[in-house]
Write a protein that binds this DNA or RNA. Sequence first.
DNA 1: CGACTTGTTGACCTAGCTCAACAATAGTGG
DNA 2: CCACTATTGTTGAGCTAGGTCAACAAGTCG
Lengths: 243, 243
Amino acid sequence: MNALTPMSEATAVLSDRPVLPDHPLFAGLTRSDAEIIAATLVPHVFKDEEIIRFDGTPDQLIGIVRSGAVAHDIRAADKITTVGLHLAGDLLSHSGPRTASVMAVAVDRTEILGCTMQEFNALLARFPRLQLNYLDLVTAELQATRDWYTLLGRKTATERVATLILRLSRQPRAPEDPVIDLLLTRERIGSLLGIKMETVSRQIRAFAKAGVIALFSPTKIAVLDPTALVDATGDIWRENAAL
Amino acid sequence: MNALTPMSEATAVLSDRPVLPDHPLFAGLTRSDAEIIAATLVPHVFKDEEIIRFDGTPDQLIGIVRSGAVAHDIRAADKITTVGLHLAGDLLSHSGPRTASVMAVAVDRTEILGCTMQEFNALLARFPRLQLNYLDLVTAELQATRDWYTLLGRKTATERVATLILRLSRQPRAPEDPVIDLLLTRERIGSLLGIKMETVSRQIRAFAKAGVIALFSPTKIAVLDPTALVDATGDIWRENAAL
DNA sequence: CGACTTGTTGACCTAGCTCAACAATAGTGG
DNA sequence: CCACTATTGTTGAGCTAGGTCAACAAGTCG
């Protein structure tokens, strides 16, 4: 194995001796442990709109989103409600006992480094350090989920859209590339943010008109005025916190 | 130790050989493990409005709410926003890296069986089964949090109030006692649900007028028509799921 | 009993929903 | 490559749930 191989890119292609990506889930593991874990976690690639097993059964997928995104939809009767979004770097964890029939769907071409819940449980049982890391991540996600949704519930449409754009703007992408792909249609953005498609459109256009963002195509944007965008999220306390 | 002592009540008073409450966190533990754990977890009693250490530091409290409730508040400048509520039976878990300065406050007289995060981490490291149970609970909470907030973001005021009442109505209380204590003022309910005090009042009164609930005093109610209340939550898919 | 907090109710006002028309894209088959 | 269709996005004109403001009632506590 070439020690200089960039970890962030080449994990998938080296099948003989795979490398774990640089992710907090794998922090502090010994080299040998990491190798065993890396042998279990394999890249899963999904096409746009492809359904990802995420139903709480032992066969469900657990892992880290490497690229693309995973949308969590509730499909009731005729209409789809998107209730969550996992982006690159996020952990797709145990889905727990479902009260709603949420399904995970790939957005864009999506790569997930992972394994089945069953296999993952075995790893957790075998490597206490992994379990510790995992617990930390789930806890952090719980926190993030609280923050995200708590606020959604009391934000205006403008604030919600700004929050989403901000979140997407923080996604890893090619250095110096200012273009952000919203990935989602207006319809899905609205669904995710609990507002209507038309309102999403109006808000995005308003940001463009105000010079806060540049709008290249409906889904391709660039943030021109990050400060204004942060202000528009309405998150007062973020001023104090390290973002 | 008297084997007939009701577990739900007497945990606190028996200091020589404490008993763990019947809670999923302690499922499947051997008797001796349970005894060691029970020796670490002590009842903490808080008065109404008392602040509970819940700041992500090693000294923060981790444990199970036995009675009363814990509100999570963001106190910015002059006004308090309640962003979450833990009721009896809920687990107060690691609070994770805080992005906002949320503080935990006791609502009513509140009893929590727990210990510091530091002590709890030691227990987790020592008892794998406990760690497994804990992970399950945190995962479940993540799920519940998603469900709760996700929906809040897209519910009407009526649906939000119905959802809260329903949740409170499912709290353990004296058998055959139909009276539910809302615990919170209209102001705090509104804050929790992301709506205004006046709207909360209007919704509650509307339910009372419609005969869905009985209103004995502003905070003491009884559910007269559970079906109507469930309908009013607007949770379509709950029909399919075991509640 | 008075002062203070909490709750109720009414009259307005506004953000965002609804409905509707139309524009811009993206496929798709010829 | 174009015409044809379907999807997605934009924009305007009302409408309504819930916010805002304000007055008052009802607890509650010294």
